[in-house]
């Protein structure tokens, strides 16, 4: 008994069983590779705060000599020249992103639970279709989507931006793979206790699915935040930030600098969401896990 307890103690403090040197080596390796990965993003940020004349210095500098926010100012001044106030674009983007993310999480979680854990007529076919639809990429689909939306009188409304993004086969596939790992015995036990499928999904399965759900939130937010309104929305008042920001980037005087500023500006919200979601994942892992 005592023997088992020490083993448990050692294992629960996961660092105990391993060499500190190994962890340090991993840390150094990841740091070096990470610096390389970050280099282009670092350069983007640097170039967004470089004044125009510094963009053409040879050899190119890895830092800004006289950092300035001119590029950002220029971008916003271009944005403010539109007929619609800038706040409208911010609202559009937030509205579309939040709606899509929320709907996608709720709908995909439920559908994924049913597809992973229930056998019913049609379940196998639907499971197959989800993967196939991920593989089928055709440029004609967008035209057909447009035709469907036109038939439903959705062009030039928020619906045209929101509805097509809600049912993402990738999100469903991710959740299905993860929920599939929940032991069947847990679900059977809940059924014996008299819980319905809906309750099992939301009160038993989903609380254990935080890592996958947080990952889904990151994907959904990122995809929705980058929705380009160009081809389905023509009125200025329904356009989203990516559409107008890329317009501003190509209209700016010192185009490289403004384009960088636009890229940096658009990158901030997804990174914030990413940090919040990832922290959630790691915090939950400290005191919960799937128990058979």
């Amino acid at each position: 008994m005592a023997q088992v307890n020490t083993a448990r103690l050692r294992a629960s403090n996961r660092q105990a069983g391993r060499k500190i040197g190994g962890t340090a080596a991993i840390f150094i390796f990841l740091t070096l590779l990470g610096l390389f990965m970050l280099m282009p993003i670092y350069l983007t940020v640097i170039m967004s705060i470089k004044p125009v004349e510094e963009l053409f210095i040879f050899p190119p500098k890895m830092y800004a000599i006289r950092p300035t926010l001119d590029n950002f100012r220029e971008m916003f001044s271009v944005l403010h020249q539109n007929r619609v106030p800038f706040s409208r674009y911010v609202f559009n983007s937030l509205f579309v992103t939040v709606t899509v993310t929320a709907a996608q999480c709720v709908f995909s979680s439920m559908a994924a639970f049913v597809l992973a854990k229930c056998r019913f007529p049609g379940s196998r076919v639907i499971n197959g279709i989800i993967v196939i639809s991920l593989l089928y990429q055709s440029n004609v689909i967008y035209i057909m989507q447009y035709i469907v939306m036109a038939k439903l009188h959705m062009i030039d409304t928020y619906a045209a931006l929101i509805f097509p993004a809600i049912a993402s086969p990738m999100g469903l596939f991710l959740m299905r793979q993860s929920i599939g790992q929940v032991p069947d015995s847990m679900i059977e036990a809940a059924k014996v206790d008299g819980a319905g499928l809906f309750r099992i999904c939301w009160q038993i399965v989903m609380p254990n699915q935080k890592p996958a759900l947080m990952t889904l939130i990151i994907f959904a937010f990122q995809a929705a935040w980058n929705i380009q309104a160009g081809s389905v929305v023509f009125q200025e008042q329904y356009k989203t930030l990516p559409t107008v920001v890329s317009q501003a980037a190509s209209a700016g005087l010192a185009r490289a600098g403004v384009a960088m500023a636009a890229a940096v500006f658009m990158l901030v919200p997804p990174i914030v969401i990413f940090m919040l979601a990832q922290r959630q994942v790691i915090e939950t892992m400290a005191h919960s896990g799937i128990k058979e």
């Binding site: 282009p40 960088m260 890229a263 990158l267 990174i271």
Partner: peptide, 11 residues
Amino acid sequence: YAPSMANVYTV
């Protein structure tokens, strides 16, 4: 993960 979020072909 950041590179796959960033749209930085210009750089």
